[in-house]
Design a protein around this nucleic acid. Structure first.
Lengths: 158, 158
DNA sequence: AGATATTATCTCGCCGAGCGAGATAATAGG
DNA sequence: CCTATTATCTCGCTCGGCGAGATAATATCT
């Protein structure tokens, strides 16, 4: 009955990782008087900071799938907690620029640092070919997840 | 300026995947008159069914990090939508057994099928060593994420 | 057996995240 | 200038999820 190869196991594993990851995020959020969305917002802002993208309110809301009202209250919340600051953009004064405070960086690090550490330690036991394989898989999967849902194909479910 | 090796990139990639994955889940949920939590619940129930674990209300709530009140209303919601059925356990009549309807299986497949298909296609282009590497990484990372947060270590942040 | 503790789920009342609709302010184009 | 567009905010509301506690079924201890 339906030999389905080792690929299916990998996919379920990845899904399991994402579920567990989401749970940790939620726990961390609760522990710090926040909500899962707030944590994801901090992740996005830290990513934006790392890649030099100017983080604005609207952009953040779009990335999180919130509408403008929700975005405003999210930012209010994070500002109230001292995790970010609003600044009117001087070039285009409709925009609000967001910058995370050092305190928030510290917080983010506390949340993800240990996990990052473990993962790096794990990967240090891999040779170049193996690391490249993991990298290629994640890149490909990210592309697949980002793509709009279209073809389903007659794959065997379970 | 802290040469930080290829490991860090992998971790950020994985985080990106989980964020994107969460977004797709939320979109799918909204498209079907549900909430992100409901989708995660269906995932858990489908997983439980696959591994033969008896799915009970309490167990589901624990996996999702909800308290009993929230769990009850979640189940009410899914039952109302026809995605699961409640049955009192005959052995222990305090328990409520949950079983997903075929309709819900179909729905879950519509949500994750294309993604699973893409990932499998991707992995078919990998040789055994590479697949094994991906598998080992995901297993190790899952273990790391499941572990309680303890050591932080002085790793270089960014 | 009968009293008590424990477990599994449900009910009630409340808080607040996020939505829809629309207001407000700044920029761009005719 | 007058209008269209863009970016953010305000208001009112719905409903997911929490805390507290009720209820019912099962274990445990004399």
């Amino acid at each position: 009955m339906a030999e389905q190869g080792p690929e299916r196991e990998i996919v379920h594993l990845l899904r399991k990782v994402t579920v567990e990851f989401g749970l940790r995020q939620a726990e961390f959020a609760a522990r710090n008087g926040m909500h899962p969305t707030d944590v994801r917002a901090l992740i996005c802002l830290l990513d934006a900071g790392r890649s030099g993208t100017g983080a604005t309110a609207g952009r953040l809301g779009a990335e999180l799938g919130l509408n403008s009202a929700g975005t405003t209250s999210l930012i209010d919340r994070l500002e109230r907690l001292g995790h970010l600051t609003r600044t009117r953009d001087a070039r285009d004064r409709r925009r609000v620029l967001l910058s995370v405070t050092p305190q928030a960086v510290e917080l983010g690090w506390a949340a993800f640092g240990p996990m990052i550490g473990s993962a790096e330690a794990l990967l240090r036991g891999f040779d170049e070919v193996e690391v490249a394989a993991v990298r290629r898989f994640l890149l490909g999967f990210h592309a697949a997840v980002s793509a709009k849902p279209d073809q389903a194909g007659g794959t065997d479910r379970s």
